[in-house]
Amino acid sequence: MKALTLIQPWATLIAIEEKKIETRSWRTLYQGELAIHAGKKIDKKICDQEPYKSVLAAHGYTADNLPTGCVVAVCTLLDCCKIFYDEADRVSRLMDFGCTKIEGNELAFGDYTDGRYGWKLHDVKMLTEPIPAKGALSLWEWL
């Protein structure tokens, strides 16, 4: 199974299904099962900002109890779409069949700069017990 390492709190935001699109500067052609790995680093400053703080708190998390160095969820990577800024509507959108508009917490939880990529995640399943694992850059093989 392919895996993707993310800094916290983004790995947990995906695991708790509050973040459904992962934004990257690079594109992937891969589609299929994907493990979400929480790296060892936590951006504690962002964890104290809204909407991060309240969303994490609603699920019992703070910067002090986020899991690190482990796989926290598995999901399906459905598609990788280029991000563009729609001047007419003044919103970021994914270049997919529905020209998906990005808004709300999803917009706050990603970097939707024009020209980046949105990885559409589906069927996220948070693991009841995170599985310790050493992460890596890019997509990597887990299990």
Rank of each mutant, 00 (worst) to 15 (best):
M1P: 07
M1D: 06
A3N: 10
A3F: 07
A3Q: 08
L4M: 14
L6P: 04
L6S: 02
L6W: 03
I7M: 08
A11C: 00
A11L: 00
A15V: 02
I16C: 00
E18L: 05
K20I: 13
K20R: 14
I21M: 06
I21C: 06
E22R: 07
E22Q: 09
E22Y: 10
T23Q: 06
S25V: 12
W26E: 07
W26M: 06
R27Q: 15
T28Q: 11
T28K: 09
T28E: 13
Q31N: 04
H37A: 00
A38V: 12
G39R: 08
G39C: 11
K41A: 14
K41D: 12
I42K: 05
K44D: 13
I46P: 06
I46D: 03
I46Q: 05
C47H: 07
D48M: 11
Q49V: 03
E50N: 01
P51G: 04
Y52F: 14
A57Y: 10
A58V: 01
A58H: 03
H59T: 01
T62M: 00
A63L: 02
D64E: 14
L66K: 08
L66Q: 09
T68C: 00
G69W: 02
V71P: 02
V71K: 03
A73I: 09
A73S: 11
C75L: 03
T76P: 01
L77C: 01
L77F: 01
L77V: 02
D79M: 06
C80G: 07
C81K: 13
C81F: 08
I83H: 07
Y85T: 06
Y85Q: 05
D86W: 09
E87K: 09
V91K: 15
S92Q: 12
R93H: 12
L94T: 07
M95A: 15
M95W: 11
C99Q: 14
T100M: 05
I102F: 10
N105E: 10
A108I: 06
A108T: 05
A108E: 10
A108L: 06
A108M: 09
F109M: 02
F109L: 04
G110D: 08
G110N: 10
G110W: 10
G110E: 08
D111F: 14
T113E: 13
G115Q: 05
G115N: 07
R116Y: 01
Y117F: 15
W119R: 11
W119I: 09
K120M: 14
L121A: 13
H122R: 11
D123W: 02
V124P: 03
K125I: 04
T128L: 10
P132L: 13
K134H: 06
G135K: 01
S138A: 12
L139H: 00
W140A: 00
W142H: 05
W142T: 00
L143P: 04
L143F: 10
